[in-house]
Nucleic acid binder design. Structure first.
Length: 635
RNA sequence: GCCAACGUGGCUCAAUGGUAGAGCAGCUGAUUUGUAAUCAGCAGGUUGGGGGUUCGAUUCCCUUCGUUGGCUCCA
């Protein structure tokens, strides 16, 4: 956050860090005569040493804060907690932060909050908002805080307080009869919160740990005005329309069948055609970039998974073993061990490195039933997996190439907006610190070389290495991880991988796992939502629909169809005896990008009337020209 | 797995403690049509599965499976 304000004497002051700007704003807007203009920066009160008159001109020049709405949401969370405590005094409060899209507050209560109760809470919040209760800050020592929350009988707050060092000073925020332990900042008073909506209630484990008690969480969103709220709720409605599950059904792309099993996807002909296009492109590009395409089995012996460590670290995620000839086999949850075995199938020289293997490898993971979500989280999926085995010297170049390659592929699918995350060493990790540093640095350099913005997830790496993740957002603004580029300091050692260097000595290679699309299923889901089913032309299962106006031109229609097919375009013809409006509607609903409409006029002039999906009639073109424009659109 | 909500013909949805109805899709016939729905007829459901309460349940209860929203996890 940064704050820049202009004082009455014309001087400008700037602040960085966590600023309780609203505290500042209050001093200004309330126009307290001769009030000291003060703010809170990084939790400390800052006196700006300026006495101002009630009508003095103090203006905020810039106030930048990524967490801008979060302050607002967090204040709303407090307001909600106050309402809940007033309505249900026995409920214990826990925590209630702002999140990416709104806020939540977790309460300890036996019963879940019903929809009617949410409405009741909303009404109470409205009431409290009208009272314009100021949020006041008070600083206390930890021990004072403990006394206060003991008095209030809030065990969760006490649990938090007990973990805080004794000499720490804490802040409490109080509005009306409600006090919460909170770092702040907050809006000035509850009256600022004019529009809010409690969206849903759900269960959530205390501190996110399934061993703990399941609390009852309420999610909500708020805005300074009713209009903003309306726009937001409207956006949510719009977003639902592009839900991949809905579009997948409407366009007959895929299904998930109860009788087969949860999280197991059936790709229908149209979805399969899109997948075929994705995979063909993927293979073509990998070959062009010196990857070796490989195929590996779906199951492997238990001993293999013991060596890899999966049976130790990942057993819960694996399907149970099956026995054959007294030996346990497991369905693969990952492809790595197989690729490693290909690498190890012969002595490798440094001259062979980097050695790259890529496979569209189908894996099965036992995801929790409650976590399954359309194509986004399934139990059987195909990763576009690759492993790059290289020397330490090659690391940086390889990472850079990889990022280039990833971005090129994502762009081809029309993705231009995504979030990039760099995840660094967690506390528990294998490998040397220097190795981690070197690898992390090379990842960072690669991103920065592209001038890309990224967020650092400190300690968010896997235990076996740092990684870059690229996430794409879906219709409901949830982000889904697609691309992942991960280092691995674990498997090369576990499998005792080596290569013979120029010094004729064996050396341990570096290994990079990467998936660009992530899984074909999730990628497809994201693709559907991103384009709302209006896929780029090169992916469309049917690119052109030929629509004869009457039976009399069906024959000409067939000729046009043949020409389209000869040009390599996926085309169909609709020769049913229906009105043209009906045929067009069907093609539009199916989101077919091009309609070639033909009647007597077109048949005579060797032409077609071109209609583009969502754009309408583009006029009459010679068949060859029409075909050419479709082909151009493919790129 | 946990906390909730939901589960009616292929799809979208309606109805009731007395045993299910519409639109779309499908089928049949008529219509030969100029840029987003031609008309008519037909067929289709033991209301996710199992159990219970009841004279009677799809409607109430239990259980199971699944879906949805979260928690957790992750591609």
């Amino acid at each position: 956050m940064s704050l820049k304000i202009k004082l009455p004497d014309g001087s400008i002051k700037e602040f960085e860090g966590q600023i309780d700007v609203l505290e500042v704003a209050r001093s200004i807007s309330d126009g307290l005569a001769n009030a000291a203009l003060a703010g809170i920066v990084n939790g400390k009160k800052v006196d700006l040493n300026h006495k101002i008159d009630s009508d003095a001109e103090v203006s905020i020049i810039t106030f930048k804060s990524e967490e801008g709405p979060e302050i607002f949401w967090h204040s709303t969370a407090h307001l909600m907690a106050q309402a809940v405590k007033q309505l249900y005094p026995d409920v214990k409060v826990t925590i209630g932060p702002a999140i990416e899209n709104g806020f939540y507050y977790d309460f300890d209560r036996d019963k879940a909050f019903s929809e009617e109760e949410l409405v009741k809470i909303e009404d109470k919040m409205k009431e409290l908002s009208k009272q314009k209760l100021p949020y006041s800050r008070k600083e206390v020592s930890r021990n004072e805080a403990i006394e206060i929350f003991k008095e209030m009988d809030e065990p969760y707050k006490l649990e938090i307080l007990n973990e805080i060092p004794e000499d720490e000073t804490l802040s409490l925020y109080t509005q009306g009869d409600f006090t919460d332990l909170c770092r702040g900042p907050h809006v000035t008073h509850t009256g600022k919160i004019k529009a809010f909506k409690l969206l849903r209630s759900s269960g959530a484990y205390w501190r996110g740990d399934e061993k703990n008690k399941m609390l009852k969480r309420i999610y909500g969103i708020s805005f300074p005005s009713k209009k903003d709220l309306k726009v937001h709720l409207n956006n949510l409605e719009e977003a639902k329309k592009r839900d991949h599950r809905k579009i997948g059904k409407e366009l007959d792309l895929f299904s998930i069948n109860d009788e087969i099993g949860a999280g197991l996807v059936l790709w229908h002909p149209k979805g399969a055609m899109i997948r075929h296009q994705i995979e063909s492109y993927w293979k073509e590009q990998h070959l062009a970039y010196d990857y070796n395409l490989v195929y590996t089995p779906h199951i492997g012996k238990g001993t293999l998974w013991e060596t890899s460590g999966h049976l130790h670290f990942y057993k819960d995620g694996m399907y149970d073993s099956m026995e054959m000839d007294g030996i346990d086999y497991y369905v693969k949850p990952m492809n790595c061990p197989f690729h490693i075995m290909i690498y190890k199938s012969s002595r490798r020289s440094y001259r062979e490195l980097p050695y790259k293997m890529a496979e569209l490898g189908t894996v099965y993971r036992n995801e929790l039933s409650g976590a399954l979500h359309g194509l986004m989280r399934v139990r059987g999926f195909t990763q576009d997996d690759a492993h790059i085995i290289c020397t330490p010297d090659q690391l940086e170049t390889e990472v850079e190439k990889l990022l280039d390659f990833s971005l090129m592929i994502l762009k081809k699918f029309g993705f231009n907006n995504f979030d990039i995350y760099l995840s660094t060493k967690p506390e528990k990790a294998v490998g040397e610190v220097e190795e981690w540093d070197k690898a992390t640095e090379s990842l960072k350099k690669a991103i920065e070389k592209h001038g890309l913005e990224y967020k650092v997830d400190e300690g968010g790496g896997a235990f076996y290495g740092p990684k870059i993740d690229i996430k794409i957002k879906d219709a409901l603004n949830r982000s889904w991880q697609c691309t992942t580029i991960q280092f691995d300091f674990n498997l090369p050692t576990r499998f005792d991988m080596d290569y013979i260097g120029s010094d004729n000595q064996p050396h341990r290679p570096y290994m990079i796992h990467r998936a660009l699309l992530g899984s074909i299923e999730r990628f497809f889901g994201t693709l559907i939502e991103y384009h709302a089913g209006n896929f780029p032309v090169w992916l469309c299962p049917v690119q052109v629909k030929v629509l004869p106006i009457a039976d009399s031109v069906n024959e000409y229609g067939q000729e046009v169809l043949a020409k389209l097919k000869a040009a390599g375009i996926r085309a169909e013809i609709d020769t049913r005896t229906e009105k043209i409006g009906y045929k067009i509607r069907e093609a539009e609903v199916s989101k077919i990008p091009y309609m070639f409409i033909i009647g007597g006029k077109e048949a005579e002039a060797d032409s077609v009337s071109v209609r583009r999906h969502t754009k309408g009639d583009l006029g009459i073109l010679k068949v060859e020209d029409a075909i050419k424009s479709v082909l151009e659109d493919e790129e």
